[in-house]
């Protein structure tokens, strides 16, 4: 791990996360694993970034400013609003949902992670496994 830490793997990640420290931890761990990471705190700006740039993976928090993660997800999955989205969308949240809503979100996303349940290193491992 350590040897390859600084080697770039050429993959770009957008992390839409309003908690600075979590963004910091995630971007630190992901950069070490060779990803190019953009952290965005704001839902609307994150959505715009995702629509105008090409990312491989989008980490999406649900409780974020201006527009919620669920709205970002819907708009990213709407071909009229976001055509040709290549990125995999991984929900990263600490919000406990009722089963139906969780199922609905999960059906639209490529992954669903409860942040408190995994460490940044485990996140890196998870992202490696879904490629």
């Amino acid at each position: 791990m350590e040897e390859s830490a600084s080697q770039k793997n050429g993959k770009k990640i957008l992390c839409i996360e309003d908690e600075l420290f979590i963004g910091e931890l995630y971007s630190r761990a992901l950069q070490k694993a060779g990803y190019e990471v953009t952290v965005e705190l704001d839902g609307q700006k994150g959505l715009e970034l995702a629509q105008t740039n090409r990312f491989d993976i989008i980490l999406l928090d649900l409780m974020i400013p201006t527009i919620t993660g669920i709205d970002v997800l819907r708009q990213l999955r709407d071909p009229a609003k976001t055509p040709k989205l290549k990125a995999k969308i991984i929900i990263t949240t600490n919000l406990e949902q009722r089963d139906e809503i969780k199922a609905d979100i999960e059906s639209q996303a490529d992954g669903y992670i409860v942040k408190a349940n995994i460490t940044p290193r485990e996140l890196v491992e998870f992202l490696g496994s879904i490629d």
Binding site: E19, F21, L25, V114, K115, P120
Partner: peptide, 22 residues
């Protein structure tokens, strides 16, 4: 309320775990 409480508990917990790991 409980969902919010859990969410708030988990946020610093996430950080703790992250930093301890770091």
């Amino acid at each position: 309320f409980v969902a919010l409480a859990v969410h708030e508990l988990r946020t610093p917990l996430t950080m703790l775990r992250g930093y301890i790991e770091a």
